[in-house]
Structures are given as C-alpha cells and as structure tokens.
Nucleic acid binder design. Sequence first.
DNA 1: CTAAACTTTTTAAAAAAATTAAAAAGATTT
DNA 2: AAATCTTTTTAATTTTTTTAAAAAGTTTAG
Lengths: 393, 393
Amino acid sequence: MFFKNIDLIKALYYSKTASLNDLSIDTGRSIPYVTKGVADLVKLNIVKEIGIRTSSGGRKPATYSLIADTGFIISVAMNQFVTRIVIVNMNNEFVGDVQEFELKLNDNNNAIHSLIAHINATVIKSGLPQDKFLAVGITMPGFIDAFQGNNLSFLQSPDETLVTYIAKQVELPVFIENDSTSIALAEQKFGLPIARSNSMIINLGWGIGLGMIINKEIFKGHSGFAGEFSHLPLHKNGKLCSCGKQGCLETEASLLAIEAKATEGLKQGEVSSLVKYDTVSADNIIDEALKGDAFAVKIISEAAYFIGQGLAILLHLMNPESIILSGKGSVIGKLWLSPIQQAMNEHCIPHLTTYTQLAVSNLGNDAQLLGGVTTVIENLYKLSPQVSISEPA
Amino acid sequence: MFFKNIDLIKALYYSKTASLNDLSIDTGRSIPYVTKGVADLVKLNIVKEIGIRTSSGGRKPATYSLIADTGFIISVAMNQFVTRIVIVNMNNEFVGDVQEFELKLNDNNNAIHSLIAHINATVIKSGLPQDKFLAVGITMPGFIDAFQGNNLSFLQSPDETLVTYIAKQVELPVFIENDSTSIALAEQKFGLPIARSNSMIINLGWGIGLGMIINKEIFKGHSGFAGEFSHLPLHKNGKLCSCGKQGCLETEASLLAIEAKATEGLKQGEVSSLVKYDTVSADNIIDEALKGDAFAVKIISEAAYFIGQGLAILLHLMNPESIILSGKGSVIGKLWLSPIQQAMNEHCIPHLTTYTQLAVSNLGNDAQLLGGVTTVIENLYKLSPQVSISEPA
DNA sequence: CTAAACTTTTTAAAAAAATTAAAAAGATTT
DNA sequence: AAATCTTTTTAATTTTTTTAAAAAGTTTAG
C-alpha cells in the first residue's frame, strides 16, 4: 500500500491531526524532510490537509490528517473466555459495532477455527473489499513471541506459526501481541499524557498484567518475560498458583481470586446482594460493588490493597511518572484507587509516592481493542508493498 | 581540549583499541564519518594508529587507540567511612597508587574540606601539570542530582552547588554520581560482556545498591529515584530502617545488618573466631568467612538468601540478561552465590532463572573507581573547549 | 488605529552524513 | 599458483540536516 514514510504515517495515526512541526518533533526528523514526505503522501491520496490551526503569536500552521478510508485494521481482543472484534479506520475510529462472543482459550481444540471464522465473517459483513484491510491485530493472554508470531501458552498451531496459519485462512497479514503489552501501548499512544514516557500500566483482568513503558518504549526484557507482576512472590498464604508456585500476588488479587473469595464468603453466610446469583462471576461482583453492596466492595478493596503492596515495590524499583489502572477491571477504577494509594503510602519510603501519579485509564474497556490497532501500526513497515510493476520502457 | 568527535573518543576509551569498523558499530555512525573523524584526531595527537590486526579471511584492519598521556582523570570513590583517590590515563590505566583515607560522611562538617585537600594533594604529588587533568569524577552514596551537581544526602555546600564549590577549590571541572549508579556504568563499560545491554548490578556495600542497565542505558527513573532495592518492603521484622520505614530489605541483608547480627550472635555466645575482635567490623567478618569460620559464613549466607529473595522480584519484573554482584562485598562473591541462587530458584516461576545469569564482578573493589572515570567520560562533551582564538585575517 | 517588533511557519540554499559502488588487500579454495 | 571469496578502505552519489531567508501572523507601543 505505502512503503516509504511509514514513520510519518505512524505519527499521524497516533496524533490524528498534526502540523509539519508536530510531525518533525514526533518523528525526530528535520522539517524539510517531513515537508517533502507529507507532500508525497498527499499526492498518493493517503494524507490530506485539514486546515489552518490557531497560533500563539505567529504564522498559523497547516494541519494534516490521514484519509479515513485509505485502509482498515481489524482488531481482535481476546481473554480467557470472551473475544471481541472491531474494524478501525485510519482516523482511529471504530467502523460498525464491536462483535463480542464467547471463546474459551483453555482446553478448546476448536478455538483457533472459531476465531478464524469470526474474523472472516467480520470482513464479509463489513462489505468492504478485502484489499482495503491492512492487517489483523490479535491481542491475547499468554507468553507471546511477537516476532515469530506464536503464542506459547494458547492456540497452538501445527507445523507453522500461529500467525502464518491464521494469515493463510483470513488472507490478510496478521500480527499478535500479549494483552497487557498491547494495553500498555494503547495507553501510551491514546491514553493520558502522563503515560507517554515512563509508566507502569496495570491490566486488571483475570490475572494482573503489567506493561512497562520505559523511556518511551515498551519494555519486554532480555527474553520477553519482563513484567511478570502477577507472579511476584509476595504472600505466604500457601495458595497454589497456576504457575506452579505458591504465594503469587495473583492468588490474592486477580479477578479469579476475587471470584473465589466471594463464593467462599457467601458460603460462610456473608450478607450480600450477591446471594441472588447461582454462581458468582467477576462481572456480578463488579456490578454489585458499583451499586454499593458492602461485601462486594470489601473483597475488591482487599484485593486492591494487595495490588498496592505490589505497586509499592514497582515504585521503589522503577520510579515511574505514572501508574495507570487499565483493562477490564478498570471500569470500577474509582473503587480500587483509595486502597491502592493507601497500601502504596504505607509501603514506600517517605515522599516516594509523591513523584508518581496513580490514575484510572480513560480508555476503559476499549484499551485492548486499541492495543490491537497499535500492534498493527507498529508493524506497518513489515507489510510488503503491493506494487503494480510497470514494464520497462 | 577536544570539542568535536567526542563520541569517537568515548568509544575508543571504552574499547581501548578499535578498528574503524568497530568504531562505526560502537558509535552508530557511518564508516566514512568515522574515518574522517579518526584522521582528524590523529592529526591532533589525541589518537594514534596502533598497528594491523588479524582478520578472518579478508583485508587486515588498522587499529587505533587513544594516546595515554593526552589527559588524566581523577577518580574519587567515597563510601560512608573511607575515600579512595586515583589518577587514570586515557588508556584507562591507574597512574600511581590508589590513595586511601578515612573520611566520615555522617555528621562531619569538615568532610568537604578534607576531600578537597586530598584531591589537591593528589594533583601536586603526581607532578603532572594542572592542565593535563580533564576533570574529577566523584562517586558517593546518597541521592545525587548528577545534572545539577548536588548530593541531597551528604556534603551540603552553602549557596552554590556541591560541584561548583569543589570545582572552584580544585580548579578543575568536577562531576558527581551515585556510587551504585557509577558501579553499574563501570560494569557495563569495563566488566563482563553479559552486563552490556540488560543487567541488574548489585552494589554490596553498607547498603545494598542497585544500578539498572536497560536497553544499554543506565536507568534512573522519572525523577532519579529508580533502583531503591535496599528499601524494598519485604520483611515483617519490625526493624526500623534509616529511611524511617520498617522491614526494608537492608535491615536484614546489608553489611551494616550483618555487623549487627554478628555482634548480637557473639553476645549470645556463638562459637566463632570473631570473638578475638573488640568490636566486630564487616571487614573482620569477611576475613573470617574467607578463612572458613562457620558462624561468619552462616550470617553472610542468611543475608545472601534475603538478597536472593529480592532478586527474585527483580527477575519477575525486569527479566535481565544478567545479575552482577559488585562493590566492596563482591570480593567474597563466591560465598554469596549459592544461597542467592537458591533463593532465586525457590521464589521464581519455573524456568525464569534459566534466562538470567548470576555472576560476580571481575572488577572487584576497583569497580567504583572505574565508575568515577566513566562519570567523567560520559560528561566529556560538557568540558568547554580551551580554544586559543586566532585573530581574523 | 497603525506601524514596528516579535513569533511561528514555510521555503530555499548550503553543509553534513549516510548509502551505494568501486577498489584494494588479504585469506581461502581449487 | 590462480581464482574466488572476505574484509577493509576509498570514492561518488544520494539523502538528510543545518542554516539562512522569506512569508504570514500576533502583539505591543505610540
């Protein structure tokens, strides 16, 4: 589709509209370089001039944007139980509704075929021609080798990599990324400005994921295992974790642990509006906590306090500009905030917490879907140019 | 002294001798650029061609080095009780002996003047002319603002910054850096190759310092507080830490804690060769442990195990290529290794430890002195050129 | 209210640096 | 021993940045 000036397209995608000056800063390239590049992109009908912006005492700059329907991205956000799919245009706007359906990742041989069928259905339903789609960005839990395109934990594919397998079936390029990593990228690119440079982004989900933005880059460690926040050995509770170890943070603080605690509490006769459910799900607890049920609030607060203890450790080591609560659980962000802040204050050296802002994401449940988009944008340079080769004269 | 090509000088200093190709890789600049730059430096008598190196099937490259006596650096390594000074040439060789003297940092109004006197004495004793010295690199504990040149914990100077105050008195440029940070830089530049890109460097000293190398850069966090390993809240022992909190790692695992435990143990009647000392110092414990004293080995092992517990957390979060044990305490590195490794294995998710190498520094007690040198080299670009301005024609 | 002074953006010209291509020097293979 | 292959060095070309100048606004002073 486009081969040159990928860096300009990336910067324009993330900023939505920008002046030549903005683009020069965002890409780290000189103004003449950017000027030439944008002129080329305008000629190719990929970028258009939007208009003139106000200025604070000087010439008004021309501003540019990507043309919305130049291309479309398919974002697939998976968790252990549910998958969502949405089509996104070049102005980062959702096109059509978000498709949501159940898809169990554990012990499900059919998962990969179900996923492919849903992606293909989405393409067809959209009515858009196949060649308008740039790529599919899949985000999901598990240990993911984004470079090779494999998930070592879920969705094994025979012989070839997961990404090539799916790509063949959907006839589109496919990129894959870990859910927490993708959420961190989404927060960095589309979230609060304090998440841009040095930020710890917590994915409150079935586990407790962490994506680290260090010096404006996502950090994955030497072999891709960095950010294993969920398995920090902080508790002497003897509870066995899925990882095989005991006392991991997630045995006390994940949504799964919260579900288990609620079920156990109700069995012990706790008074709560949760009794009306046959089996209590995390969603039920969130709902009732929002309505003010004391028991639901209490077990969430307890979990939050443990997370805050873990964050205190993160603060000592990383001294980030911000900690962002994101992911599924962040829709009840306000409920987590105060016990987390309290635990951080209690466990940090004096004044340390004053240097880090704790905030709830403004992207809510869209974070992972936007993360899938980011995954595609970051890999744009890998898309082979579909050149129509003209005959030599 | 030299204004252009500082990047080449830096690369040459760290590699000691290098071909044009090596320098191109190390500096990230093109070969023509490096070729031109080195030719200029040779003309200025800063660099000389050393000879021709063997090659694996191709033309033999010319190799270059800095000229040893072009300039000299004064490195000052301080800890809570003792300060060391040495002069280092442009080939990273110590010139003359390392000066060592007692200098208490706590509650000592005279500390700063004593320090200045010793630096000046070193200059005079060397017999080298003042203008041959490039700068003084001071490394010491405390929270240091390297950019402003202040130490917020020790050596307060009135009105002006610590660095300007000392610079005036010694009539040389002065740079300052935190001891653990400087040790990490020394390990990265002069130590084991596994410490180059992603490494956690532990400074086993009166506290337990940490310097983090992330993506080939030292990482200090958003406001300079990153790497507070010593104060990780890992213990529920009720012991008050110097930071004002309770249960910090250093209350169990620093050399100070080890001293306290030994003294207490002897009072309880432990059998040990340590009984022969009036008051037991960390050095005594190290000596006797090396000689095989069971009690000394035991309390060091206990501390090591706690450090290993802390390192397990670091492994989960950072997934580094290596962990390097450095600093004063690393001279008994072998004694720490096995309990640390054991604690790491016990507290990490399965297989995680296989991705990180644990090693003892090969720089030993010189690490901090070399760190002072690195501090100067990294700030070389700040040295104002002493140009002899010629009259316009 | 208008002209001068100041800011910011855009365009143009010059300089710097990187990329590509070619040549040189040596090691390895046939 | 000649031909082939590697690596380093030099040269030519292209790309990119830096610097300077011009253009288009805003703000301030009289």
